[in-house]
Structures are given as structure tokens and as C-alpha cells.
Amino acid sequence: MSTPTESIMPPRSNRPRTDAVPAMDPAVKSIQPGGGVVMAMELAWGRARRAYLRKFRPGYVSRMADRRQGERGDLTFDPVDSRDMKYYRNQGSYWWADADDPFLWRDALPFVRVGLAELLVLGGAALLISVVMALFWWPLFLPPFMLFILVVWFFRSPRRAVPSGTGTVVSPADGKLVEIVEIDDPVIGPAIRFGIFLSIFNVHANRVSLPGRVVSVRYRPGKFLNALRPESARENEKLDIELESGDLDGRVIRIRQITGQFARRIVCWARVDDVFARGEMYGMIKLGSRTELVIPRDDALSIVAKIGEKIFAGSTVMARYQSDVSIESDA
């Protein structure tokens, strides 16, 4: 689990900083800044659940209040347990230790935990419709049942074997590698950008490519163009995280989540000062999308992945920084 830290701090890069721009985008008020119908439904259910627990289970509410840690901060309500913090875990508010969280078991399910509500609402609705259709004429159950299978398949979260080795860059997303280009990035400098297209059949969880500390989280609303169109990377809704990696002497990498024509909900629970391990999950994009990875370009970099290759988040090696070649800091 990612945790904020004060003692583990990779050397800072020489990138320019602007004090007027906060590292944590103030527009990011939840892990799903674009909102959504299912999110609104789940938040409404949370309000009803808290009212029920306070009225009929005050002992449970009291125990959970005694065990919670942190401070309320800017949170607009008083949470009862960890379920209430699902959408606000990136706000630096209350949290519960694993030993005090009665809902930690949900992390062990073979599905991405932040997609469980969609799985229940969308998948449950499709399954219910298929049963009703079967009562009229059994072949009618097939289309909604296939939709149910697709929803279940979409939110799956398979285990991944993460490669080790200092300087090993793993893929941040499942999908097809459609772009490898050299760019001059205003923050990173000379860089390589990898573009990954995710179809609705891919796992949509995002993972960190190199171990590091989050130094910036940026969100920008936008359009919902087809993720295969080149202009989608510029015009669609997107969220960037930048990390300083100890593997690169504190230099910065960027992972960008981009919505698509059908994938309209970016989820990211990373916040500034969180430390992530290589291959650790930090978010997802719901229902088809694009992910980009930008890393520093220098003589130590060896690109392994090839355009057109099918890649897997956290396990496919995209590139390696050779330890026997000196890594120069940004000028």
C-alpha cells in the first residue's frame, strides 16, 4: 500500500518549479474527479448507510471513530468507516489501519476494488435483464448476459509478477503499444513517450512504471474522442501524475491517464508525497482508453518494447536504464 513519507525522499530533479501552481491540483477533490452516475449513486447510498448505522448501530460507529486516524481536513461529512473514504482517499483525511478495517477483504477480490459499484450496478442490471428475457423466450437472454460477462471481464484484476532490477521500466497499462516517440518535455527535458491503447477487453487498472515519490497530480477536463485518434491525447479529459524515482537519481517520470469515447471516468488515488513501488496499482480508467508514459531519454536508456506489441501493466518491460552507463541530471 502506498503511504506518504517524510524519511524516504529521492533526490529532487532540477526541473523548474512554480510556487503559484500547487503540486496537488485543487481541482482533484476525489479519486474520480470527473464524477459519474454510479459514483453519485454510491455516494447517496453512503449517506443512507451512515444514517442507518448511527441510528441502529451506535456501538459500531463509536468503535470505528476510536480506531480511525488522521484528521477531517476539508472533508464535508463525518465518515463512519473505510467505505466512506473510498472516493476521498487522496485527500489526506481520515484512514484506518489494516488491522482496524473490517472491509480490507475486498482488496483480495479478483476485481479492481474501485470498480465494484459499477460491477454491481451495470453487471447486476444486465444479469437481471437476461433473466427476465429468458422468461419470455430463452434466446433473448443471450445479449444482456454477454453484456454481464463483458462487465465482469472489464473490472477483473489479475495478479501480476513484477520484474525486479534497478532501472527496469514496466508498462503502466494493459493494451497495445501504438506509439514510441522522442519529445522535448517542458518538465522532463529530452524524453521518450510511449502511447498505449486500451480496448474494452483489456484490464484497465494502471500501475506505476518505476518506484518513486509522487511530486505532482494534475487533472484537466476535456472531450471524449476515440482513443485511437491522435488528437485524443491533446483534447480528451486527462490526469497526470509525476514521480521522482530513486532508480533515476530523483529524475521525473510522468504517467498520463486519458479518457476515450466510451471510457469517461478516470480514477487515481495517488496524492503528493505518496511513495509507490514498481508495478503498484494507483488507479484505473473505466471502459476503454489511452495511457501514456514519459521517461527521460539519455545514453543509459535501452528501449525493449516494440510498437504493435501486446503489453501488460506491471509485468511487461518497456525499457531499462543500464547501470553501467552514467545517468546525467537534467541541465
Rank of each mutant, 00 (worst) to 15 (best):
S7C: 11
M9S: 15
R15F: 14
R15K: 15
T18H: 14
P22C: 06
M39N: 03
M39R: 01
A40R: 02
L43F: 07
A48W: 05
R54M: 12
V61D: 10
V61Q: 13
R68D: 15
D78K: 10
D78M: 13
D84W: 15
K86H: 10
K86W: 09
Y88K: 15
R89T: 06
Q91S: 13
Q91R: 05
D98H: 08
D98C: 11
D100W: 05
D101V: 06
F103K: 10
W105Y: 05
L122R: 10
A125T: 14
L127I: 15
L127P: 10
V131C: 14
A134E: 10
F136G: 11
L140Y: 15
P144W: 13
F145D: 13
F148Y: 04
L150T: 09
V151H: 02
V151F: 14
V152M: 15
F155R: 01
R156G: 02
R160H: 06
R160I: 11
R160C: 06
V162C: 03
T168G: 02
P172S: 03
K176M: 07
L177C: 01
E179G: 04
I180G: 07
I183A: 01
D184F: 05
V187M: 09
I188T: 04
I196T: 01
I200C: 05
I200P: 12
G212D: 07
R213W: 02
R218E: 00
R220Y: 11
R229K: 09
R229N: 12
P230H: 10
E231M: 14
S232M: 08
L239K: 00
D249R: 07
D249Q: 12
V252R: 13
I253D: 00
F262P: 03
A263K: 06
A263W: 07
C268Q: 02
W269F: 05
D273V: 08
V275C: 02
A277T: 06
R278L: 06
R278V: 14
G279L: 07
M281W: 03
Y282N: 00
T291E: 00
I295D: 00
I307R: 08
I307W: 08
I307S: 12
G308H: 06
K310E: 11
T316C: 05
Y321F: 11
V325P: 00
I327L: 14
